[in-house]
Design a binder for these strands. Structure first.
Lengths: 119, 119
DNA sequence: TTCAATAGTATACAAATTGATACTAGATCA
DNA sequence: TGATCTAGTATCAATTTGTATACTATTGAA
């Protein structure tokens, strides 16, 4: 549902489900996690890779590009060698922080509980 | 990342990202939307279909089954013909409501703005 | 001089997720 | 008698996501 013109936007059945709209923006497989790690401040490409070692370079690139296209993250390139590129939440992206923090809170609470239950 | 034993759970790099954990539970393509429509109370299979006409029967079944497996929704079958099956948030599922409501709030606000911007 | 580091791109392929369509049973309605 | 309703299955196709590997340019360090 990436293409907003053929997906959500065209469906005229009602005025559109707000949750569906939100998921259209942050519903990518890794987007929530990436946004989470940007809350603290700008972060570099390879820092992401170290923090989430299970995401591949390709996926990281793709998800960051989509977030950039949607105006959620800013990408700043420093003309250095070796290259330095920093990703950070845009002003618009910052409006998503409450959602991400609710996810963090829930995860912290129930991750703990499920690891206890697993004993 | 459905299989918690091979996905999130096995990765021992740190104690695990809470947002990743949360997305492991509600990250399915339609789960957020389905949970949202259950907030108001129990809802039947075909009611979901009418409310979200773009979800296929198959996907609806699959996503509801996963939510059920994870203890997030209750499925109640009424022995009638034609059949009646109601889905509702479990007590555990209700702990996710704050996340869903944040998504709703955000969607309502920015859906409006983007439809204005589109003129 | 060769190696490491950075932030990627390119390519090929495998696996997982999602979608489209047709089909089912049994009661009720016309 | 045949159509309609419900809550699904079954099967196959298409899309998305993931894996693996090789490659780029430039600087600085060993």
């Amino acid at each position: 549902m990436r293409d907003r013109r053929s997906g959500y936007g065209e469906c005229p059945n009602e005025e559109g489900c707000p949750v569906e709209y939100t998921l259209d923006v942050i519903g990518g497989k890794w987007k929530g996690v990436l946004l989470y790690h940007m809350i603290e401040g700008p972060i570099r490409f390879n820092e992401f890779r170290r923090i989430c070692p299970t995401i591949t370079q390709r996926m990281l690139t793709l998800q960051l590009r989509e977030l950039e296209e949607d105006g959620i993250v800013n990408r700043e390139v420093y003309p250095q060698v070796p290259p330095k590129v920093e990703y950070s939440l845009s002003e618009f992206g910052s409006t998503l922080v409450p959602i991400i923090l609710e996810m963090k809170t829930w995860g912290e609470k129930h991750k703990k509980l499920s690891s206890i239950a697993a004993r």
